[in-house]
Simulated scan of single mutants.
Amino acid sequence: MTSPTKKPRLKINGWLALDKPYGMTSTQALGKVRWLFNADKAGHGGTLDPLATGLLPIALGEATKTVNWAMDGRKIYRVRVAWGSETTTDDLEGTATATSPNRPNELQIASILPRFTGEIMQAPPAFSAIKIDGERAYDLARAGEAPVMVERPVFIEELKLNEATADFADFEIVCGKGTYIRSLARDIGRTLGCYGHVAALRRTQVGGLTENQMISLEKLEEMSHMPGQEALQGALFPIETVLDGIPALAVMENDAARLRQGQKVLLRGANAPVSEAAVLVRSGTDLVGLGEISQGALKIKRLFNL
């Protein structure tokens, strides 16, 4: 009996602003989206914990070459911190490791927020994907070990208190790459002397992708049943969506052809940049790739095969 022929994967390029549902891992969400699009390549621009919801940027096709820029972009979160206990995972998933009857009032909370704004030192949660001697911290923690989590600098652009009750506080956080909101909840709770953990977390922005661009898995599934791929592909944003902070450089078609063959192109003229760590290279309306300028010469570092 002949086995059914596998449907060939499609070359689909662009970014999807997925509204990740509660209880699903980022890897599971990525797999579901890739299956719905039948895409040949897929990756995501920054992990969300299973108990978190909101914006999970998913790159399809050639957009996977820009994932690092998405991960480096500023992020906005809304978080509810529950007072009274600290947990093994610093969220609802873990078991309590310390408790306190103390509860902070709004004034007390507001008074300590400047300590957590700007560049601060932060130790990641023990249950995180940080590698320690080649092992994931969460694997060590699950095995009963106590991984030593080294503090590192992170940047909190804004930390705003939206609401405070006796048992919880709601915050909005604007931050940079590598910030752990669970660590922030833990450290605020310790500073207030009441302990705390994340009770709810939602991400609303990653770089150039925002909350009003998000789409749910349910909606994508509906669209996948429509004829053709037009509806699904209409949910995608261009590759350059996450490259807002990178200068664009236009080249002539003959120079674009040389760049695509791996050759350098000398930039001439009074306004030609002498050096630039990253530029988005275009030829007319076509994207060529991400390049680097050194000593007046342009070379492609990541070529888009569109």
Rank of each mutant, 00 (worst) to 15 (best):
N254A: 15
A82E: 14
T210F: 04
E158L: 08
L280F: 10
R260T: 11
Q229W: 02
S183H: 02
A297D: 03
A297Y: 03
G144W: 09
E240Q: 09
N68H: 12
T97P: 02
L259I: 12
T179Q: 02
E119K: 05
V265A: 12
I300R: 02
N162T: 14
N38Y: 02
N102Y: 13
G208V: 02
F168V: 01
E292L: 14
A278Q: 11
L10H: 04
A42N: 08
A63C: 07
A277T: 07
R152W: 00
F116W: 13
E240R: 01
L161C: 09
A98G: 04
S26Y: 10
A70S: 05
G118M: 11
I76W: 14
E119S: 04
L217T: 08
R142H: 11
I293T: 05
A141V: 09
I76A: 06
D167S: 11
E119A: 03
D49W: 01
S183D: 03
G14D: 03
L243F: 00
A29F: 06
L298R: 11
I112A: 03
A200P: 07
I173Q: 01
A42E: 10
T117S: 12
G234D: 00
L243S: 03
Y77H: 11
K11A: 15
E62N: 08
E240T: 05
A164Q: 12
G228R: 06
G189W: 02
L306I: 08
P125N: 01
F155G: 00
L16E: 14
H44W: 06
H197Y: 06
I132W: 05
G118S: 11
L60V: 06
L192A: 05
L303K: 08
L60S: 04
A256S: 12
R9C: 05
A39C: 07
A29Q: 13
K299S: 10
I132D: 04
S100L: 12
L290P: 12
L60I: 05
T53I: 08
Q233K: 13
G245N: 04
A297R: 10
R80T: 14
E145D: 14
P247N: 02
P238R: 00
R80C: 10
L267P: 07
D244A: 15
I132S: 05
A256N: 07
L192E: 03
K11D: 12
D72I: 00
R202E: 15
W15A: 05
I246L: 08
D286A: 07
L290R: 08
L55Y: 05
G296R: 10
K131P: 04
T87P: 06
G193W: 12
Y22L: 15
P57T: 07
L306N: 14
Q108T: 09
A129Q: 04
G228I: 05
Y195W: 07
L18V: 10
P147D: 14
G178Q: 00
Q263A: 14
F127S: 09
D255P: 06
E163D: 15
L48D: 00
G296H: 11
K20G: 04
I109V: 15
